[in-house]
């Protein structure tokens, strides 16, 4: 099989796409009035660190991989970097995370998840080629905005500046502020905070919560003691990223990037924006706790 030559910026051919591998950037905030959720990278901090390595716009799109299992063949020399808990390999040699790496035509790139965090990101100097919807390259298949990668896809660079970037491994190592061993998350009181019974409010902070397997880019479900839900039906109201709503079964749901823009359940709390990336990296089965913003 010959490498496609119709695009001079084709960088990789996907051998194995893995699960939910899609381009994500800073998303499209500010469109909720149209019913369009913000979308964007689940771990925004990782994207920002990668783009700092390349001295490019902080929210330039990177490939977001769930449980990183991407396997691809390099079609043209380029400089890449990845971030996440997964281990990357070039031709089966381990490569360090969060450093620029020169990869040559014909090299094989693959990743292996280690299970500590959900999402791994692959960036290239100059960014990746991909269509934009409402100013963002973030894919959201349910909303008709692109699709996830499939085997055989070609990954292309956004521009030709890949050749002007420094080649070789950068010595710059940026430290993550999101220590994964920290399993406590700061929250604000939600708009219906006072409508919850006092014992439920206390329980929300005292109890450990388990992130459910039934979690996705739209929201993470939590399992724990059942909270009492306020009586009376709430008229649908807009939501913010990180709203924690409690449906009738008393088990909270944290609304995330691809979630509905309005919700009809009482919200007990709202995640602190600075803790969102670390929260969204927490795999199902993680035991977490909440603390009130002081």
């Amino acid at each position: 099989m010959t490498a496609p030559d119709h695009s001079s910026t084709a960088l990789f051919r996907v051998i194995h796409a893995g699960a939910m591998t899609g381009l994500q950037d800073g998303g499209r905030p500010g469109r909720k009035a149209f019913g369009i959720p913000p979308g964007g990278a689940m771990d925004l901090h990782s994207i920002e660190r990668l783009n700092r390595l390349f001295n490019q716009v902080p929210h330039t799109a990177a490939w977001e991989m769930l449980w990183a299992s991407l396997h691809a063949e390099c079609l043209r020399d380029c400089v890449i970097a990845y971030a996440g808990d997964a281990q990357g390999y070039v031709n089966e040699c381990p490569i360090p995370a969060e450093r620029t790496i020169l990869i040559r035509c014909g090299d094989r790139l693959r990743f292996q998840a280690r299970g500590q965090s959900l999402w791994t990101y692959l960036a290239v100097g100059g960014g990746w080629h991909g269509p934009r919807w409402f100013g963002s390259q973030s894919v959201w298949p349910d909303g008709g905005m692109g699709r996830y990668l499939t085997d055989g896809d070609i990954l292309c660079a956004a521009g030709t500046e890949i050749w002007q970037l420094p080649q070789g491994v950068s010595a710059r190592l940026l430290r993550s502020e999101d220590a994964l061993e920290n399993t406590s998350f700061r929250v604000y009181q939600g708009p219906q905070w006072l409508e919850f019974r006092k014992d439920s409010r206390e329980l929300f902070f005292q109890s450990p919560w388990c992130i459910s397997q039934q979690s996705n880019r739209a929201g993470f479900r939590l399992q724990g003691p059942a909270l009492f839900v306020p009586q009376g039906q709430l008229i649908s109201e807009p939501t913010v990223l990180g709203s924690i709503q409690v449906p009738a079964n008393g088990q909270p749901i944290v609304l995330l990037n691809d979630g509905p823009t309005v919700g009809g359940y009482a919200k007990i709390a709202v995640l602190h924006p600075d803790d969102l990336s670390r929260f969204r990296q927490s795999p199902p089965g993680s035991i977490i706790t909440f603390s009130l913003v002081s």
Partner: peptide, 17 residues
């Protein structure tokens, strides 16, 4: 102001970070 998002009886006024 980043965006005003209306619902039946409430409007969410979301500001830049």
């Amino acid at each position: 102001l980043r965006e005003a998002i209306f619902a039946y009886t409430r409007v969410l006024l979301e500001f830049e970070p």
